[in-house]
Design a protein around this nucleic acid. Structure first.
Length: 418
DNA sequence: TCTGGGGTCCTAGGACCC
DNA sequence: TCTGGGGTCCTAGGACCC
């Protein structure tokens, strides 16, 4: 059996832990740049606000219902997430962290346990120690665990922990579940399925495996098998290293000058390379992209990207800064208002495994410099030591106007009782 | 006026090899 | 005039997830 544990309305719940005035108020947490609603309390969901709704579209609703609106505070959410993981580790050593607010858990070797009771105990402890509400779904496959988690949230009788085990229980849960709600079935697939007359999860479960694979793909085949209780999506407790590292941001303001784009890209490159070194990897190519604001129908549009390959794999910031500069100079066009720039590190392999380039040998002689740089920034804070290429101009930094303190990760922002 | 960011996996098609 | 068959690797793009 596999359990799926997730925190309800995670960002909102984190904010509520430290701010009791939010307890009985509808709350929204915004995306970067204070652009969209990415987390909503139950009250806000009940008002019909959808995930990702732009803030400006719901201004009236916010006023009308006195909704609390907050910028996102990733330092807080990341730290709270770690604390949840620490508690779950007390209950099982087979945990796959799936996202910042959810994980899959196995209980191999503990088959004698009453898993529902076990889950309730865990839930209670997370609530008591952290003040975060979680829901737990338990089932024979990941996809069904997701369904069970859905039931845990919807069925009052479940009291936030729900198990799907017998054929009867599973069929009952799938009977009224729209295919769109199934993990792995998104907008496109659900539309195609509906056109075929497949409306519910149970109907999908009963389709012919071979012909569905032929018509869709192996992904669909797996989903159907999972719905039948055949676990075929791997459980992976060892987080693999990232295969690509992406850093992208929209700007707080429109940017027209090449120099400023270069600074923003240098900032992204720097962050990405820190992640790259943290997971002890190296990359061999970098993709740079720039975009104007696609939502602005009146503005001239331009977006482009370019991939620059390094002569040999590296994890040194300066190598990628150089490549990024080469790239942006090729794709930059004057006369546009840029809204977004980003980079992707690709072709990631383990550090130290080098295939040197015969004609352009590139010495990786800056390893110790990078270590010192990372150490200083770890100790004294991000950006203490940085490349001049990032500039000192911050015209492009994102908006974050209503952010709560970093209660758990900065001494000068810890919770005060006065 | 104002619209996020970071990932994974799969497939088709092209370039190349012998 | 007539031009095979079996592979690998890479990339772009599309679907999905949170």
């Amino acid at each position: 059996m596999i359990a799926l544990c997730d925190v309800n309305n995670f960002y909102v719940s984190c904010e509520r832990v430290f701010n009791p005035s939010l307890w009985h108020r509808p709350v929204i947490v915004l995306s970067n740049n204070d652009g969209c609603a990415v987390a909503r309390s139950n009250e806000v969901k009940a008002l019909g606000v959808k995930m990702g709704t732009p803030l400006f579209q719901i201004k009236d609703l916010i006023k009308q219902h006195n909704i609390a609106v907050l910028s996102s505070n990733y330092a807080l959410y990341g730290d709270m997430s770690q604390r949840v993981d620490d508690i779950i580790a007390l209950y099982s050593d087979q945990v796959e962290n799936y996202s910042i607010d959810e994980c899959f858990i196995r209980f191999d070797g503990h088959e004698h346990l009453d898993l529902v009771q076990h889950g309730k105990k865990m839930r209670q402890q997370i609530w008591q120690w952290l003040g975060l509400p979680v829901c737990i779904g338990i089932a024979p496959s990941k996809t069904l665990a997701k369904v069970a988690n859905h039931c845990a949230k919807k069925l009052p009788s479940a009291a936030s922990v729900f198990k799907l085990e017998t054929e009867l229980q599973i069929k009952k849960a799938l009977k009224d579940l729209p295919v769109k709600e199934i993990w792995g079935v998104g907008r496109q697939l659900s539309k195609q399925l509906n056109d075929m007359g497949i409306i519910t999860a149970l109907q999908l479960r009963n389709t012919d495996l071979k012909s569905m694979r032929k018509r869709f793909s192996v992904v669909m085949e797996r989903t159907i098998l999972e719905l039948r209780g055949v676990a075929c999506i791997e459980f992976d407790a060892d987080p693999e290293k990232k295969k690509q590292i992406i850093c992208t941001r929209s700007f707080g303001e429109k940017i027209t000058r090449l120099e400023l784009l270069k600074e923003a890209l240098a900032y992204h490159v720097t962050r990405a390379c820190v992640t790259l070194r943290q997971q002890q990897s190296q990359a061999q190519s970098i993709t740079i992209s720039i975009n104007t604001n696609a939502f602005n129908a009146n503005a001239k549009q331009y977006s482009n990207s370019i991939t620059v390959k390094l002569p040999q794999a590296s994890n040194q910031t300066n190598h990628f800064l150089k490549a990024a500069t080469q790239g942006i100079e090729k794709i930059f066009r004057l006369g546009y208002e840029y809204k977004k720039a980003g980079i992707v590190l690709n072709n990631i392999t383990d550090a130290g495994v080098i295939q040197p380039n015969l004609f352009m040998p590139q010495a990786n002689d800056n390893d110790s410099l990078m270590s010192v740089l990372d150490e200083i920034n770890n100790r004294f804070g991000k950006g203490t030591l940085r490349s001049a290429q990032e500039g000192f101009n911050e015209d492009w930094v994102m908006k974050s106007e209503i952010k709560s303190p970093a209660y758990t990760t900065r001494f000068n922002e810890v919770f005060k009782v006065v």
